[in-house]
Design a protein around this nucleic acid. Structure first.
Lengths: 172, 172
DNA sequence: TGGCTCATGTAATCTGTTACATGATTCT
DNA sequence: AGAATCATGTAACAGATTACATGAGCCA
């Protein structure tokens, strides 16, 4: 968790609220977090001197802007070089489908249709992100953003193909 | 968590150890759990009369065999009919890749290669599962197992295609 | 004026993992 | 004999969510 925040702050100073927004947009396909974990994490990062806080007022609104320190950047780089510890996919949809024999095909079909609509609603955001990023002529970071957007696009397309096949099998 | 266990017990009575094994094989692509959560959950299910326990000895080994009750079956069916609450994908690989601009392409390529080998190592298990399930002439539950195996297969294949594309982009 | 977005934070709770402790059987 | 597997369980801890509490500015 600390490292996601450091990663975002590496590029620009942000408030906790803005960090949350980044996660809900750019990272949403593969990472998420709530305010209840973001704010305490920011405090602990400040405590460890990986980040500094700066309180200010903007248009009458109180804000706390967080900025990464050199130590923070180093910490991030070390973590980035470490091998990945965990890639996790946990889909309740698949779990319910696995036990579909207990309910009959109607309920399973409903789960598949719901899954399909969620994916169909998300896909345009990923495609839009890809499209935009492909248009930007090579600023180094964008290439990496593009990779993750492409991943999401491919995976969601695979999901939709599976939905078609799964529906066919259950509708028999 | 309770419902995964109820689902597995619906088909056959099992020990905690066997439940763990099912999760590490049939469910591993989309669900996981440790002994530290399985045993306490089993106890709470017994407490709620959704499951009964039967202590016995098999070839000199002490075992506790858990069996689902009618109330347990009902509980499971209700849950299966409820809409899905959460499908979550949380890939550290993508997170590290997203921040790849901070480290340069070598480290990112290494993460992609590691990801690729993990996927390549897993894919045969899913293919084997699909193959077996397709061979069984229509016992109702197998059709549902097949759906989840097919999902895994498609997704892993999409992952591998993405790996090729991602490597190409970073190797430029 | 009411609803939405911006903005920060805490407390209770939940859910789950890791590490430990123990010990028998089975395979090589 | 030693390693792997079978088998059960607890305790400490980690990590995160949810719900709550608060309040200002912006838009219709």
């Amino acid at each position: 968790m600390d490292c996601v925040i450091l990663g975002l702050l590496c590029h620009e100073s942000l408030t906790g609220y803005e960090i949350k927004k980044r996660m809900d947009t750019a990272l949403r396909f593969f990472w998420s977090a709530s305010f209840g974990s973001i704010y305490p994490t920011l405090n602990s990062l400040v405590h460890d001197s990986l980040v500094t806080k700066f309180e200010t007022t903007d248009h009458g609104r109180d804000k706390v802007i967080y900025t990464i320190t050199d130590a923070g950047r180093e910490h991030l780089k070390k973590w980035l070089a470490l091998p990945v510890k965990k890639d996790e996919l946990r889909y309740e949809t698949l779990l319910k489908l696995f036990f579909g024999g207990e309910t009959g095909p109607d309920i399973s079909l409903e789960h598949i249709r719901n899954f399909e609509s969620r994916v169909k609603a998300e896909l345009p955001f990923l495609q839009e992100a890809s499209r935009k990023l492909k248009g930007i002529p090579d600023e180094k970071a964008h290439r990496y953003y593009l990779l993750t957007a492409m991943f999401g696009e491919r995976v969601y397309k695979a999901y939709l193909e599976w939905c078609e096949e799964a529906k066919r099998i259950l509708e028999e």
